[in-house]
């Protein structure tokens, strides 16, 4: 067992984990942050995307011990009280979700895109979503949501 300490959504937390404990297991099972989903557990679907030190990463393909000392942001860390993050609000406005399973990963991935590219084109959004799979929407409204979310984030 190892002790890990990291900052999650601005709060410092510690916990005992096995070497093999995945970051997503630490988040969901120990920290009870169940907004981060596990769709495939094989690094393909992106439902588990969180930010680690500012970059999007698949938390099913990272060990909790690798995140020791890191700054982690999950979907729970985006809203300010009752005010949704502009990207979350854009998904709601534009019907960017149906069942919602892929949505946390989509939003975390989309925010990372906007950090790199404040005004992404439709093609750039579609290319960026290579690692995020949605079984429901057909992606069209997700792309629309991200365009609107990027615009709102530009202010």
């Amino acid at each position: 067992m190892a002790n890990v300490t990291m900052t999650i959504n601005g709060k410092q937390v510690s916990g005992e984990v096995e070497s093999r404990t995945l970051l997503v297991e630490f988040l969901r099972d120990q920290q009870r942050l169940t907004g981060t989903h596990v769709g495939c557990d094989t690094s393909q679907c992106g439902a588990c995307v969180v930010h680690v030190n500012g970059d999007s990463a698949k938390s099913c393909t990272m060990l909790a011990v690798q995140a020791d000392g890191a700054d982690v942001t999950t979907i729970e860390g985006l809203a300010k009280g009752d005010d949704l993050h502009p990207m979350q609000a854009a998904f709601r406005e534009n019907h960017g979700l149906q069942c919602g399973f892929c949505t946390p990963g989509m939003i975390m991935s989309a925010i990372d895109l906007v950090q790199h590219n404040a005004d992404p084109s439709e093609t750039e959004i579609r290319e960026w979503l290579e690692g995020n799979i949605c079984r429901c929407t057909g992606y069209h409204n997700i792309v629309k949501s991200i365009k609107a979310g990027a615009e709102a984030m530009r202010g």
């Binding site: 690094s43 992106g46 995307v49 970059d55 999007s56 990463a57 698949k58 393909t61 990272m62 991935s109 990372d112 895109l113 960026w128 290579e130 690692g131 995020n132």
Partner: peptide
């Protein structure tokens, strides 16, 4: 290579 999250790690 892969997708943005694969390229990030």
């Amino acid at each position: 290579i892969g997708d943005p999250q694969v390229r990030n790690r």
